[in-house]
Design a protein around this nucleic acid. Structure first.
Lengths: 152, 152
DNA sequence: TCGGGAGTTGCAAACGATTGGCAGTAGAAT
DNA sequence: ATTCTACTGCCAATCGTTTGCAACTCCCGA
């Protein structure tokens, strides 16, 4: 099996991100740029509250973070993840990569390891053939106890 | 690849379920029995609201369904599923089977197909070796458009 | 069969994440 | 600079889920 750990690719330049906004007939605003900047600096799944906390003090409203994240997802700039705790998280997609990947999350400290390769494309094809379902997608997240936490 | 579709196994007899309750030093009450009965009759992931609606009119409180479902999960009688819409669903586990399986859900009508075999045990072993994480678990759900919905 | 105490329940209020309304603000095209 | 809208802040509403508390009931022992 290939190495499962993921080498994080280059972050898209901000210009390319704002370009995507314009293409979608959306405006490039202060809050959106700031949120993109936070996502560029922290390449791991962030909740909207975390994003807000990482922005300059009182910079924008939580509702704006939610709305921006919806937009960024529609434009394909971020990917959403659910770990099952009822909180949605988002991560910036890599340039030149469809961004699809999975995570291994520590159940104690929430440390995250990204998993590069997706092993389920073949499975999806088979599943589609057997079930008749089309346009298959999947969500897959692993949890475990990370090395640090094992020693406590 | 083996047939991915799942042949639903025999449902545990109610007696075995109440036995599990007693073993856990928990009481066999009316609401709990009724909830188990609903889960036995509908072998697919049900939200707590759906369970409540399937109970006799005004039979018990939604809070009781939530509390019972927590208990049943702790006792290992039900498995929890997340499709990503922010609503937890539960399904009764089969007898003599650890109950671990996945689903293929239609994004339009929410029809569910259960997938019997789990293909990720080998992946988990490799992942554990590479990452150092232990006690790995995973959550995996597929979505797609079911044959009926494709024709509309 | 009859208490009695611990586990359960119903009800309502509390909670946390997310969404919606609305009036004021600010991109960006002209 | 003007103007048209998209966007934002503020706040209330919504939704799934949890919790506090008093009343209730299951179940064991007498």
């Amino acid at each position: 099996m290939a190495d499962l750990r993921r080498k994080t690719g280059p972050s898209r330049p901000l210009g390319e991100l704002t370009e995507a906004l314009r293409r979608g007939e959306r405006r490039v605003t202060g809050p959106r740029l700031a949120i993109l900047q936070v996502l560029r600096e922290h390449r791991r799944p962030l909740s909207n509250k975390e994003v807000l906390a990482l922005l300059p003090q009182g910079y924008c409203d939580l509702a704006t973070v939610y709305r921006s994240m919806h937009l960024l997802r529609r434009l394909g700039l971020v990917q959403r993840f659910d770990v099952g705790d009822g909180v949605a998280r988002h991560e910036l997609r890599d340039a030149g990569h469809d961004g699809h990947h999975h995570h291994l999350v520590c159940r104690r400290c929430a440390q995250v390891v990204a998993i590069d390769c997706c092993l389920l494309e073949e499975v999806e094809r088979e599943l589609s053939r057997h079930s008749g379902y089309q346009a298959l997608q999947h969500r897959l997240e692993f949890t475990g106890i990370c090395p640090d936490c094992q020693q406590r």
